[in-house]
Amino acid sequence: MPDFQPKIVAFVCNWCTYAGADLTGTSRMKYSPQVSIIRFPCTGRIDFMLLLKAFASGADGIIVSGCHPNDCHYSSGNFHARRRWIIFRGLLDFLGIDVRRVQFSWVSAAEGAKWAQLVNETSERIRELGPFAGYQRLRGLGVG
């Protein structure tokens, strides 16, 4: 599918990854434009239901990113989030949802280059996986 432009939603924390993505821009680094960034106070606030809602709204892939371990602005939000992701990923896989569509990462405020690389690689992978039609078909009844 050469023309397929994946929709990627990035859930990022305010303190590290959002600032990191900002740095990517202010450093004039070019990266894949398919990503829409949503800023959260902390990775600890990124409820798994929000990821499901992103898929339901048409996202083909998701990035979830925050501060590296020990760098959380609230000291432990990312550690708690990590446990939730471990369990959530296992459940998605068990339900037959391809976890390659959800990329988790730590990107600090200084890692503008890592952010660009992360988005590029993720959008490349989602492009290969194609549209998330299986999930979007669930909307069948048109109520969401």
């Binding site: 371990p69 550690f79 708690h80 990590r82 446990r83 939730r84 369990i87 976890v99 730590w106």
Partner: peptide
């Protein structure tokens, strides 16, 4: 409760 606590060395091989 296992999901409202953590260990610094919880597995994270899936995180970039």
């Amino acid at each position: 409760h296992s999901l409202s606590t953590f260990k610094p060395d919880d597995p994270e091989d899936f995180i970039r």
